[in-house]
């Protein structure tokens, strides 16, 4: 039962990622990207990593979409006739993408069915029990404490980036 649910969610994830690449309007592309993040968060939740799923949902599906939409609204849109010309040219470039994806998928299915390449390196699930919450948090805080320090430093750097890059400037 869980496998079928994960299959449906993964199908939605690949589909919405494909849509976010193909859609011409940047605003709608950012929203489909948020939908992809939400579906990925659901997959992570089903695989047992709850903390990461919540952070992915709130940060990627929330904050990154807000940043994208603010960047889109701060940059100028094209005029109407330029949009038509650009749409036609764009279709010519992106038309190959669905065919390439179907070809890659067919290649992978053929490789699996004919046993030419074994996928054992991702082993099958042997334990389906998920450790409880205190073990999860203790691993994050005790084993990977250096990464937490790195996150703090990266956030400091991001703060300086915002101060330097987003300050009011006069056009040169």
């Amino acid at each position: 039962m869980k496998e079928i649910l994960i299959l449906i969610l993964l199908f939605g994830l690949v589909g919405s990622a494909l849509l976010s690449v193909l859609i011409r309007n940047l605003l709608k592309a950012a929203i489909t990207l948020a939908a992809a993040s939400a579906l990925l968060a659901a997959v992570m939740f089903l695989l047992g990593t709850w903390i990461a799923a919540v952070i992915e949902l709130s940060v990627c599906a929330g904050m990154i979409t807000v940043v994208f939409i603010s960047a889109i609204s701060l940059t100028k849109p094209l005029t109407d006739e330029e949009i038509l010309i650009e749409a036609r040219e764009r279709r010519g470039r992106y038309i190959f993408l669905p065919f390439i994806l179907i070809a890659v998928l067919a290649l992978l299915i053929i490789l699996k069915a004919s046993n030419l390449m074994n996928f054992d390196f991702i082993e099958s699930a042997n334990s389906t029990s998920v450790p409880d919450f205190t073990t999860q948090t203790s691993v994050i805080w005790n084993n990977r404490a250096l990464d937490i320090l790195g996150q703090v430093i990266v956030l400091l750097s991001g703060v300086f980036g915002v101060v330097v890059l987003f300050k009011e400037r006069t056009a040169k």
Binding site: I55, V59, I140, R144, D147
Partner: peptide, 15 residues
Amino acid sequence: VLTQALVITLIIIEV
């Protein structure tokens, strides 16, 4: 649990 810690760090850095 270990990869979950990695993914949390990855998300923050990527933002």
